[in-house]
Design a protein around this nucleic acid. Structure first.
Lengths: 342, 342
DNA sequence: GTTTATAATTGAAATGTTTTAATAAAGTTT
DNA sequence: AAACTTTATTAAAACATTTCAATTATAAAC
């Protein structure tokens, strides 16, 4: 089970490495018969030229960057990736996307993989759990590997492009309060995201600046994926007395909001007449949803573009640049899943 | 603007390459003071160790494969990618995703990039235009680089995992005919996909096996992206007399179908009462759509899994394996966007 | 039949890292 | 203070390819 090298091919074909190399690189000068012969030897040995070794010599001309998102199937992330791609392509970079599936292990492995594969830099949507492990990020810093985070990570200084979750949720909740809502819930997201914590914080803040009181029961952990949120929402309302129903729910993200709306529909609770629902992110598929979702729009393309811009600036700098932190603002978009009560 | 190498760092720090290497690889034995000194020199020079050169020596332990899809934002493709990831991860492979944006140029560049970056194999959703350029695929074959296609490409023998579009559309159209529809349209997709051609073919076939006659005006090219399809659908119906409206439309994919439904809604045409709409793919977001879409389900995860399985089998084989062709079947799912007329 | 031009091929050097064996310095035990 | 260990460091070899200048074979021209 030994590795086949260009030398094995050369030996077997009775020529030198140089000639084999010429065939691989489609140089015009090799005689047709020798070329065919070498080709057939390559097939016999199932020889696959090692990309790595070729690069060493000339250096890859293709420049590329990576992005590690959390979920390939959530449009919020793919939209960010699209923004990254747009900017990167305009600068002549290719983009490779991977997904950590919210697993620390994978985030770590990928950041390593990218650095080792000579991908010039990486944009990371980091997993932030209680005691967030971040040695892998420190390692990237040590080897001066350029990267940009899409969420703040405590304990590390790095380039960050993110949104102002606190203000965002406050805007939404304040709007609800001002339009007469008194019983408002927040359906929170997974603990692995800093967004979750910041949004809870924003929710709480909004109350402290109003005449209404905050109570911790108003924050309910209900999952961020569709099926899970659907089930948990139904369960939540089944145990509730109708008079205790909230008049509005602020969701962690749009996918969750879509699940909540569907769950309420199944329970014959009318949206927005009985309960208003606010999403978060403004993902593409929520925009084209027949009940247009009131939501908090995160500028997804812009996040991607900005992150790519910072990353590429760092990649191309011959000196180590100071870290940048960009906090993009969100837009509260009132559509038809919320109702004015006063 | 010269490249900084480990040697430059060593020289500047007054040690040898070996010591610098030891620092980079966090070997325990380097004296703390020399380590700090070397680290600071690395920062000064903004030295980034070349991943490529490190790999050469030991060979990378991390195994990875790539997948080139056409659109990062279309759930059909990300679902396939998820299937690939699932299988690949179970076999210890990492997965990198890229999108060609339906551009030949990009598909070509990525297939090259992957092979050169020592990514062991690639799954490709190929762009198939009239005179499809496929030299890049021939090149992959020449260097025995393992790959699997997600659409048939004329003129090349390769591993292929795809679906039976012909049968799929026939099933749907036949159902419509059997339930009393007489005026049926097909909204076709982009010419860059073999699916488009096969689906048109299937549509035609269904008629040849029925008592109804096929006419080429029944196939309308309306785009596969949401906005485009929305506009073109509206335009199409504005120029039509109400009595000429079809009773059913078979769409190229679900995103298009969603656009068609929205367009019809805006035109005050009721779905499915006045016009039935059939999608294609059964993407996730169509499943959770409030008007559940009648559609043709492509086993997206299964496509991904199967493609990954074949790819990895080829990667791990020391001999060149014969090509495999897998055609997966689809499932026609009747939900609520179609109406039985008889 | 010798020279010249051209086509085909060779062999060594170069690429930037990691590894290994060898060595020097410092510390510990007798 | 000699002998041995441990710690820190060095120098050279190894990795699989491409490149480039040098060489040989082949064909054409004289």
């Amino acid at each position: 089970m030994k590795k086949i090298t260009i030398e094995d091919v050369a030996k077997r074909a009775g020529v030198t490495k140089g000639t084999v190399s010429a065939v691989i690189n489609a140089k015009k000068w090799v005689k047709a018969t020798t070329r065919d012969h070498i080709l057939s030897v390559m097939k016999d040995l199932n020889f696959r030229p090692k990309g790595i070794a070729r690069n060493l010599k000339n250096g890859v001309q293709e420049k590329s960057i990576g992005i590690i998102i959390k979920d390939l199937n959530y449009p919020f992330y793919t939209a960010i990736a699209a923004g990254v791609k747009e900017y990167a392509n305009s600068k002549g970079y290719y983009v490779m996307v991977t997904s950590s599936e919210d697993k620390h292990e994978q985030e770590k492995a990928f950041s390593h993989l990218f650095s080792v594969k000579d991908i010039k830099g990486t944009i990371i949507a980091p997993i932030v759990e209680g005691t967030s492990e971040i040695e892998h990020l420190f390692r990237l810093k040590m080897i001066n590997y350029p990267f940009v985070l899409l969420e703040d990570v405590k304990g590390i200084q790095a380039n960050v492009v993110t949104i102002d979750n606190l203000r965002a949720i406050k805007k939404a909740v304040t709007y609800l309060i001002n339009t007469g809502h008194k019983n408002i819930l927040h359906f929170a997201g997974p603990p692995s995201s800093s967004h979750t914590h910041e949004r809870i914080e924003g929710f709480r803040h909004a109350f402290s600046e109003s005449t209404l009181a905050f109570h911790k029961d108003m924050v309910v952990s209900i999952g961020s994926h569709y099926e899970e949120s659907l089930e948990k929402t139904k369960k939540y309302f089944k145990n509730k007395n109708k008079k205790d129903y909230p008049t509005a729910i602020v969701c962690f993200n749009d996918q969750q909001a879509l699940a909540v709306i569907t769950a309420l529909k199944e329970l014959k609770i009318k949206v927005p007449d009985e309960i208003s629902v606010v999403g978060n992110d403004d993902i593409y598929y929520a925009q084209i949803y027949p009940v247009p979702l009131t939501t908090i729009r995160a500028p997804q393309l812009e996040i991607g573009r900005k992150a790519a811009e910072i990353l590429i600036r760092n990649i191309e700098s011959s000196t180590l640049l100071p870290n940048e932190k960009v906090i993009l603002d969100t837009e509260f978009i009132v559509r038809e899943s919320t109702k004015v009560l006063n």
